[in-house]
Every structure is written in C-alpha cells, then in structure tokens.
Simulated assay, not measured.
Amino acid sequence: MRLRGVSRSFGGHRVLAPLDLDLRAGSTVALVGASGCGKSTLLRLVAGLDTPSAGTVEVAGQPVRGVHPRTAVVFQEPRLLPWRDLAGNVAFGLPRGTARAAGREEVLRWLEVVGLEDFAGHRPRRVSGGMAQRTALARALVRRPGVLLLDEPFAALDALTRLRMQDLLDEVQRGTGATVVFVTHDVDEALHLADRVLVLGKDGNDDEAGARVVRDLVVDAPRPRDRADAATARLRVELLDLLGVPRTA
C-alpha cells in the first residue's frame, strides 16, 4: 500500500497534511493519536470510502477509486443486518459471483474461525456485543481481503472480550498474511498487535496545518507477543509520552 501527497480538507479546514507512506504487504500497522486528529479520515481514504483532496492512494500498485475489491472494513459497531441471522450477515461479505455451495462453505468456515459455528442461525439481537463484533470480523474475512482495515473495532467491548478479540485478530492475520491497518486509542492494543505504530498529530499550535505522522515506531518483537514483555513496556512509556500522558514520578 502506498500513499503519495495524500491530504484531506473539509471546506477550509485541513484535517490531514500531505502524507507519504509505504506499508509493507502482510504487515500490521496501528494508527494512534488524539481524538479528532484524522485517524479515521486516513482509514476511510485507504478504504476508498472517501476521496483525498490531493494525492493518491494505491493498493497493489493500483489507484484506489471507490471501495477496492481486495479491501474489507470493520467498524467500531458491528453494523449487522437485524433481519439476517449470523450466517446471512457473514454471507453479505462474499465476493460477487461466489457459487452458493462454495459460499455456504466459506461462511461456515469463518464462523468456526471466530468461534460462532454453533450460532449461525441466531439473529443479532440474540447474541452478545462481542459475538456480534466477531460476526462483523468474519464478514470482512470471508472476502479473503488482501487489506483489512479496522476502525476501533474493539472499543465498545468489555475488557476480557477485547483481549480475546485482539488475540483472534493477531492469529487470523498471521494465518492469512493480510495487510492490517487499524485505528485505536489503546496503546497496549497497538503494541500487542502492530509491527508499526504511526502516531498522528500536529506541529505547534497551527490548527490549520493538518495532522501528519509525528512518530513512526517499529515494534521489533515476534508475534504472538507476551503482554508482559519488557521491550513493549518501554515502548508503551514512549508512546504515552508522545500522546501527552507522561510517566509520573
């Protein structure tokens, strides 16, 4: 994935300064920063859900114009169709032209991967928030995306479910080799999952300057990771300091 001179303005307000980024295929990249700094805007540009004011976004060497067929998106809310059961919601993500039998097999496979094979016939109102979000993840993965984009996908979940979903995402990414870009406010989540953490922010007090990448942090630790690893603990202090949460005495 490549971004060249990508910026976004709304009216006279610049949200993103011109950005140049290269994201390696098969890597996991976290976008962190203060609320309103443009993380979700950047993700939408990569997804093809929005258009840059300037610059170009490329996936696999092709310019992104609209939703790219190799891309799937998971939002903060599951956004399931209430009149469809879980299998039907996952099937909604199948690529066009998928044969019925093959599609059914793929849907059941991904429901099994996310641990919901026994709930395929349940409607969304009958399952928990964590199960609904796992369904949304399966709906994205059934597309077999080359690029998986997630906008704070676990923010609304309880702490224990969130940790389990993080481990599931990590396992799935390592199994499929997809390029993953996700927005999060959780520093620990970023360090547990990402190969790179991009910190978005602004220089100085110029509100019209637009956000840029103020720190590109490489997390040089093998995955799956131990949450108690001392190396990531040191990076946590650095990230929190960049985000305006310095270590107390």
Rank of each mutant, 00 (worst) to 15 (best):
G115Q: 12
G121D: 15
N89A: 06
R123A: 13
L108I: 03
R65T: 13
G130E: 01
R84L: 15
G93R: 09
P124H: 10
L94D: 09
R104F: 01
A136N: 01
H68C: 05
R125D: 14
R104P: 00
L81Y: 15
P95K: 05
E112G: 15
R79P: 00
A132K: 15
G97A: 06
H122D: 07
Q133V: 06
A138S: 06
V114A: 10
L137F: 10
L80H: 04
W83A: 08
P78H: 03
L137G: 00
E112Q: 15
E117N: 11
G61L: 09
A91G: 13
R70L: 14
A102N: 10
A72I: 13
W110Y: 15
P95W: 09
G103Y: 11
L116K: 10
V107S: 12
T71M: 12
V64W: 03
G88K: 10
F119V: 00
V64D: 05
L94I: 09
V74P: 05
V73A: 01
R123Y: 15
H122L: 14
A101V: 13
G130R: 05
A91V: 04
W83I: 11
A136Q: 02
T71D: 04
A99E: 15
A102M: 01
L94V: 04
P145E: 07
F75R: 05
E105Y: 00
A91H: 04
P63F: 01
R109N: 07
V114F: 10
A138I: 02
R96I: 00
G129N: 08
F92Q: 03
A120W: 12
P95H: 11
L81W: 14
A99N: 09
V67K: 07
S128H: 08
A99R: 15
L108K: 03
G93P: 04
R104L: 13
P145M: 06
N89R: 05
L111M: 14
A132T: 00
G129K: 07
A101P: 01
H122R: 15
R144L: 04
R109E: 12
N89K: 06
